[in-house]
Computed example of a mutant assay.
Amino acid sequence: MSKQAQHWEKTRALLFITLAIWAVFSMGIFLFGAEMNEVGGPFGYPLTYWFTCQGSLGIFVILIFWFANRQEKIDEEFGFSEKGGD
């Protein structure tokens, strides 16, 4: 298998993992949130709404940095890094 094909395999696997995490935190909260709607959150909003808005955004920011870090490591492993020593 060529170096580019191996790089693409690892990149694609990382992409699928990232999309799975994104799906859980963007849609999964709604599936199990109906029970939490009775609990009041800050400023009178239902707790589900609060977790979805605040928690998901925090997770998405963390996910962006995690993905970029992992992708950079994959790129360095196969010699495709954008960090130039020039």
Rank of each mutant, 00 (worst) to 15 (best):
N37I: 08
E76N: 11
A23N: 14
T52C: 01
F43K: 04
T11E: 15
F30I: 07
S81H: 01
F78Q: 08
F60R: 01
K10G: 01
T18K: 04
A5Y: 02
W66A: 09
G79Q: 07
K10S: 13
T11K: 13
F16D: 08
M1N: 06
E76W: 02
F32T: 13
I17D: 15
L57P: 00
L57S: 12
L31H: 01
I64H: 06
L14K: 12
T11H: 14
R12W: 14
T18I: 07
L57M: 14
F51Q: 05
G28R: 07
W8I: 11
E35H: 06
I64D: 03
Q6K: 15
A5S: 12
G44S: 15
G58C: 05
E76H: 07
I62G: 05
Q54D: 01
W50C: 10
A68Q: 03
G28Y: 05
V61F: 03
C53I: 08
L31N: 02
P46S: 12
A68I: 04
I29G: 06
A23Y: 14
M36N: 03
A68Y: 02
I29M: 11
I64Q: 04
G55M: 08
M36T: 09
I64A: 06
K3G: 08
I59Q: 05
N69Q: 03
L14F: 01
L19S: 11
Q6F: 12
M1S: 09
F30P: 04
Y49S: 13
V39T: 13
L57I: 10
I21Q: 12
G33D: 04
D86Y: 00
Q6L: 15
F30C: 10
D86M: 02
P42W: 08
Q4E: 10
